[in-house]
Design a protein around this nucleic acid. Structure first.
Lengths: 346, 346
DNA sequence: GTTAAGCGCTCTTGCACCTCC
DNA sequence: AGGAGGTGCAAGAGCGCTTAA
């Protein structure tokens, strides 16, 4: 980028000087507004390109009271974040939409909701962001009150308990029903679910979806355990389920890591997969394809989820409101970990 | 946050009005500079806290020519990013250091270096960032020339080919040597390496470290294959190695996913792990502990790596230079995938 | 086309008032 | 008494841009 004689980055003043016009004319020309002749406009634009000029966001923020940035605060331990491919894909989806509109994404990783709230307040007071994406909603989420109090434009990725926040959410009912329907069609009757963090609203929604889908088949949904998404708790839950007198013939896990852990537990306990136990992973990743047998999994288009969330947030910021939206249901990728249950004598 | 009567966020003007002083006095009081009496200062600070006031970054940027933000641009496909726990941990480390100093992190995810360069130029021209963290350096990295051209303060996470950029890097020599030493001590002589992307400088450094460590034991380092870090290529490389007439008794992988893939290939080819083949994963994650046998792995303190990188960048921004720094070597976490090689007849 | 105000802040300059030899 | 030296604040310019006049 060519500098000004004094070594500073070019401004509209530099352009105005080179074009021999006022800075106002430069502003009009570069913003495509009337008030300058086509020739002058052309000349100004050429000079601006020549200098590699871009408007300073700080200056634009001052006058337009827009930060041209949105924020994302993740409130999870770093290890959990790393283990879940979800977040990076989601962020990539957000980014795709945001950077196309020259909106920056501010990312902060914190330990808990208290820290998240503090960060939100700070960003908003500093006028760092025009709005925020909220993920991992809790059943009773104290962040929501703060968002309301601040009047902070926000969109939730995931359903919102109260429902006052616009949200983009996955169709968990359809996804869970697809899995249950498929397993029942294979002949399974005792289907268990190993869910994620019980505080997440998300977990409750999926459990309800599971219970509902089972009921539609006239089946009870008794075997539901919650975990923290780690493989340890996935393994423990699997051991618990496989130790019951009447054990499930199929287990649906809320992520892939726990499903892989279950594969190991089954082997350790001498339970054949998929012969005696079918396993379904709640989301799909390289991992699922990698293990033996490869895991049947729910494949979500997470990048699209992120992109739609970004679009909703930008609409919320621009128009003051955004319609809540439901994503396309996940597709069930059937691999080797699911089959008809072997008929047990008795 | 209490609003002004007109519904706008408070500014120093609001504070000045309430305190009955000039805005200059408010600025001095809030910035801890001399020029106001202790009583007035106290009164102003109280009012500011009361209003929940924070300085607008845009305004501070304008006057101080500091964006109070730094950027990170990741140039990898979203799926790779998701599969590698590295990035989230690294970002968490960065964040820890940055948010403590009220510096925001701008994150952008792009497809390739051309897009990364475009994003860098834009951020710098828009005065969005004060500096950038550069990761995944290539052997010949075209981003470096642009950074130099722009005079953009930057710090590399990983060694820099030319060496003109300050860098924070891992001690790959020590880590690789530790693995080789251990395997040789177990009795291995034919040790192979399945490395990552050949374009990454990182990969070259580690290969050199491997070759060097082997040479110190008087062993040849012939079996070196490069991959794209996916499990597919990890599996393919493993098959290639295990199909050789004299096959390696140990393989060191550049990440965990490929090491897990190798475990499967070994099983598929009837090669016992660790009896006939020892496997070492290049980095440690939940995955390594999860599989059977659990994988011996190199554990890096990636959060510290991120934190140190952030600190170096901030020093680079403030002082104009930063000393390059090497991280503590990784620790070798020995699990079940490594053992003395069985003595083969002949 | 120009001029000028204004966004929220920092920082230099100026000034009134006080204190002290 | 008169000037030097502080203190405690106000005034105003300026950062880069937009926009009304």
């Amino acid at each position: 980028m060519p500098m000004n004689p004094d070594g500073r980055r070019p401004t509209i003043a530099s352009i105005a000087a080179r074009a021999g016009v006022s800075i106002g004319a430069v502003s009009y020309a570069l913003n495509g507004r009337p008030g300058v002749s086509p020739q002058t406009r052309r000349r100004i634009i050429d000079i601006a390109n020549d200098l590699g000029w871009r408007p300073s966001v700080a200056a634009r923020s001052m006058v337009g009271s827009r930060a041209h940035s949105v924020g994302l605060i993740l409130a999870r331990p770093a290890d959990t974040l790393g283990a879940e491919p979800f977040f990076m894909r989601f962020i990539a989806g957000l980014e795709r939409e945001l950077s196309a509109r020259r909106i920056a994404l501010l990312l902060q990783i914190v330990e808990d909701h208290a820290a998240a709230i503090e960060a939100m307040r700070l960003w908003w007071a500093e006028r760092r962001v025009d709005g925020m994406v909220v993920t991992d909603l809790w059943d009773r989420d104290e962040r929501l009150a703060v968002i309301a109090e601040l009047g902070l434009p926000a969109v939730a990725a995931g359903r919102v308990p109260g429902g006052d926040l616009p949200s983009v959410s996955t169709d968990d009912e359809a996804a869970v029903a697809a899995v249950v329907d498929y397993l029942v069609a294979l002949g399974h009757r005792r289907i268990a679910r190993v869910a994620g963090l019980p505080v997440l609203n998300h977990t409750r929604v999926r459990i309800a979806a599971f219970t509902g889908a089972m009921r539609e088949h006239g089946l009870p949904a008794r075997d539901i355990l919650t975990t923290d998404y780690t493989w340890e708790e996935g393994a423990r839950a699997t051991r618990t389920l496989l130790s019951r007198r009447t054990r499930p013939t199929a287990i649906i896990f809320d992520n892939d890591l726990m499903a892989v852990a279950a594969l190991n537990v089954a082997q350790e306990m001498g339970v054949a997969v998929p012969g005696e136990l079918s396993i379904v992973a709640g989301d799909d990743s390289q991992l699922c394809a990698l293990v033996h047998p490869a895991l049947t999994a729910l494949a979500w288009d997470i990048q699209a989820y992120g992109a739609h969330t970004a679009r909703a947030l930008l609409q919320r910021i621009d128009d003051g409101h955004a319609p809540s939206r439901r994503e396309q249901p996940a597709t069930l990728v059937v691999r080797g970990s699911t089959a008809a249950p072997v008929r047990v004598a008795g």
